[in-house]
Simulated scan of single mutants.
Amino acid sequence: MKKASLVVAAAIAAIHATGVQSQSAGGYPARPVRIVVPFAPGGNVDLVARALAQRLPEGLGQQVIVDNRPGASGLVGTHLVAKSAPDGYTLLAMANTFAVVPSIMANPGYDPLKDFMGVTLTCLVPQVLVVNTALPVRSVKELVALAKARPGEMSYASAGTGGTGHMAAELFNRHVGVKMLHVPYKGNAQAIIDVISGQVTMMFDQVSTSAPHIKAGKLRGLAVTSRKRSPLFPQLPTIDESGAPGFEDITFNGLAAPAGTPREALTRVHAEVAKAVRIPELRNRYLEMGVELTASASPDDFTAYIKAEFEKKAKLAREAGIKME
């Protein structure tokens, strides 16, 4: 009886040891992963992060928690992740402003190239060039001709200095050789209202937020900023094909990790995101909102993407004199 008990005990110990070894061999992640969203709930960065947080646990085998840390145009949450342990358990959900802010702010408190490593893209969202319906233009070529005929008289709205709409408009001005007055707002809603009312001539806006106004005839869409047409407005050409060859300025979302994060963690999260964004039901649901879910080829590829975006926008900021107070 005693011998049998010893055999059972030995067997249980062996099973336990095997379980521990398997868990260890499985490596990352061994506990829940947190995605910090540096903006309030409800925006595109938040919605995409939450969609992924629902899908990733199936492949990772651990819960994924979304933690909203808004404040100071995204700086609060970004600083939090930059100072977190580089272990793969705290990730940052970010957008274009992550790469733009350090080029227009004197002391942003982080360096996107030194303090972070790219994990993967999560989505691409084109912007649409919209104008007040009373403006006598129906194409990008006509808009450029009118702006050149009225130098400095035409204006464009944006949700704020350094935002995606502001940077896209300044890039457009330089690309086609026109000069328009920038009218910054504290948020997107009032900017759209003033373009609709005619207080401001035009703006670059996310296709998703301008779509209802374009469909209702309150705004006129001229073209999208991506290299390919938007599923939301297949009839709208790209700016590239509308007389401004080579123009592209697309909004992106992605995941980044603190510098020094183990490659195992980066590649594991990247692989699971790549699987999630290919799920037809999820992909189609976001395409209907003008959002293309996608993943980078690799973490290194996304790090290079961030670097290229930072350098492109830093050059634009210097040339246009864009500074955030």
Rank of each mutant, 00 (worst) to 15 (best):
A11C: 15
I15S: 08
I15G: 10
P29I: 08
R31L: 04
V37D: 08
G43S: 05
D46G: 10
L52G: 01
G59A: 11
V64S: 01
G74S: 12
G77I: 05
T78A: 05
H79T: 11
K83E: 15
K83F: 13
P86F: 04
N96L: 07
S103R: 03
A106F: 01
P108T: 04
P112S: 15
P126K: 03
R150A: 11
E153L: 13
S155F: 02
A157F: 01
A159I: 07
L171E: 06
F172S: 12
V176D: 03
M180F: 04
L181H: 14
V183F: 01
Y185L: 07
Y185Q: 07
A189R: 15
A191M: 10
V195F: 12
I196Y: 00
T201L: 08
M202T: 14
M203S: 02
I214Q: 05
K218L: 14
K218G: 00
L219F: 06
V224C: 08
L236V: 07
P237F: 00
D240S: 15
G246Q: 12
F247E: 06
G254I: 14
A256Q: 02
T261K: 05
T261A: 03
V269Y: 09
V269M: 13
P280W: 02
P280N: 07
Y286V: 01
Y286D: 00
E292H: 06
D301P: 01
K307T: 10
A308S: 14
A314P: 08
L316H: 02
L316F: 02
